[in-house]
Write a protein that binds this DNA or RNA. Structure first.
Lengths: 230, 230
DNA sequence: TAATAAAGTTAGACTAATCTAACAATATTT
DNA sequence: AAATATTGTTAGATTAGTCTAACTTTATTA
């Protein structure tokens, strides 16, 4: 049985080596800053997780997930996202409230409970933030998507998910009135200070990279083909 | 913020000094055996809980809950019983499965979550085992009830709750087909070996004190007046 | 390539919750 | 009231997860 803490390490590793594309392994410092602990702590834990065959790791080397570790990490994420969906759909919590609660609920280990909840929610494919929910076997469809920062001037796209799940970010998105499935048009991109002017729901708004880097979008073309110049 | 363990001590103290009638304080050994830890551990913890003003306790003395401790303990029980109700009513778990899961879920601290869940469940007064659910302020109606062992030969009564929530006990109750609200008649009480013959749903069955001590009942008279010779 | 910077490790300490083993206080019984 | 039994406490150890401070290894750059 994995501890609360071990599960958080595995979840973090999935975030950094599976969802963050281009990297299948991660350094001690990176993981430490992600988890907000000191590198020494990660060093120790990496050794322990290796003993339990959850990660691949050699002294002074990078850390990556083993097949078992990946599966366990995915289960934590499955539980997190199913609880988020429950809180949002059934208990009417808002977008920005559900993440924190799910951080606690995700550590309740019961396959049966999660499968019943899944069924109760009618087998959702995505959580309220637009992220895919891994299945019982830890499989997940990682859909192709771009950040709003990548979209060229003049092009239209559709918001499909958020990257940053923090309360502050979600409150901001909520405040400006943007929702998943909304259409966004990039009106102007200012190279000098990286500010972007966007239009959605007939409103025009100037936003910073802190916003555009954390909004996932798809355009009509990239919905069908992965290569697209939107 | 209370730890998982501290909450379990407070919950146990509520069970032993509020629900178990006649005692408002408890000894170190009793609490230790209830929690399945060593007396030394309870001694230590009693000192810590006293510092936090959660219990009244002096070296070599009995332990009792402070007003604050009682409230915190009641909150754990409120969460436990609301989750049990959810699991039973909404996720179709069986009587004997819900207790264990609720033991984990009860430690999620969020007043808002519990109030939303309460509302979602339509403000239930009792959990699936027949126990009252404390309100948001920690208040609870402790109904008058007898155990089946107290009922005299020939008398009829109604099952209202179980005392023992263990999986084994609940599985047995389920197996014999007895449910809350069922009418039970005490046919015969054998003094020699304390076996009781009961009748319910047209079935007749011989049961031991292990059963009768753990079934709570009310008769038609004690439903109205607390004094009754059922 | 030698110096410096960055990344990672180790040793030793701390806290919470537990244990065992030895001891101390209180209660009961003859 | 003395002996015995019960009950409770203390000291010292253990484990998990964390820290700081000192050290080592690897990478970068002048």
């Amino acid at each position: 049985m994995l501890s609360f803490t071990e599960e958080n390490y595995l979840k973090a590793l999935v975030q950094l080596t599976v969802f963050e594309d281009g990297k299948s392994e991660v350094g001690v410092n990176r993981l430490a800053s992600y988890l907000e602990v000191k590198p020494a702590t990660v060093s120790d834990m990496a050794r322990k997780l290796k003993v339990k065959a959850l990660v691949n790791y050699e002294k002074y080397g990078k850390i990556s997930l083993s097949e078992l570790g990946r599966k366990e990490g995915m289960m934590v994420i499955r539980r997190h996202r199913l609880w988020e969906t429950f809180l949002y759909q059934k208990l009417d919590f808002t977008w920005d409230e559900i993440h924190e609660l799910a951080e606690e609920l995700e550590h309740i280990h019961s396959k049966k409970l999660m499968n019943r909840l899944d069924q109760f929610l009618d087998f959702p494919d995505f959580d309220p933030h637009g992220d895919a929910i891994p299945n019982e076997d830890g499989d997940i469809i990682i859909p192709f998507r771009r950040t709003l920062s990548e979209v060229k001037e003049g092009k239209k796209c559709k918001m499909v998910a958020v990257k940053d799940n923090s309360t502050e970010f979600l409150k901001y998105v909520d405040k400006i009135g943007l929702k998943i499935e909304d259409e966004i048009q990039v009106i102007k991109k200012e190279d000098f200070d990286s500010l972007t002017t966007i239009q959605f729901n007939t409103k025009e708004l100037v936003v910073s990279p802190k916003f555009t880097d954390n909004i996932f979008v798809l355009c009509a073309i990239c919905l069908k083909a992965k290569e697209c110049d939107c």
